[in-house]
Amino acid sequence: MTDEKLRQALRDLASESANAEARPQVRTALRKAVRARHTSPMVWWRAAAAAVTVGVLAAGVARISEWPAPAPSQVEALTPWYFSAGMPPAESGQWIRLEVPADTAARFGVVANGPVQADLIIGDDGLTRAIRFVQ
């Protein structure tokens, strides 16, 4: 057998699979991974941002009061959380009352000389939806 005959045989062998491709199911599965890639960073970013902010708030907290939240007459209007836009609405969740340091409260436009009480609204998915300051 010559080198040329061997090369021809290899080309013949290659031609058998010249049009071979993975089945469409493979593409479908990979597309799902791409789609998840598209959505997941935002979800993780929101979760991380909420976690970080809760941590910042908790750092200045003297205590977490018992639930439930106080009557609406005692509190300001709800302020949507930074990253709540586009999030699915929370069907249920919890209030958490915190004491927020004055400098943290100032970021929300609340001017105070000392710690301020605030209610954090956290959905059952663990993500923060809104905050309101107790007057």
Partner: peptide, 10 residues
């Protein structure tokens, strides 16, 4: 673009 989740790039 693919790594950002762009399906057309995929």
């Amino acid at each position: 673009r693919l790594q950002a989740g762009d399906e057309r790039a995929f």
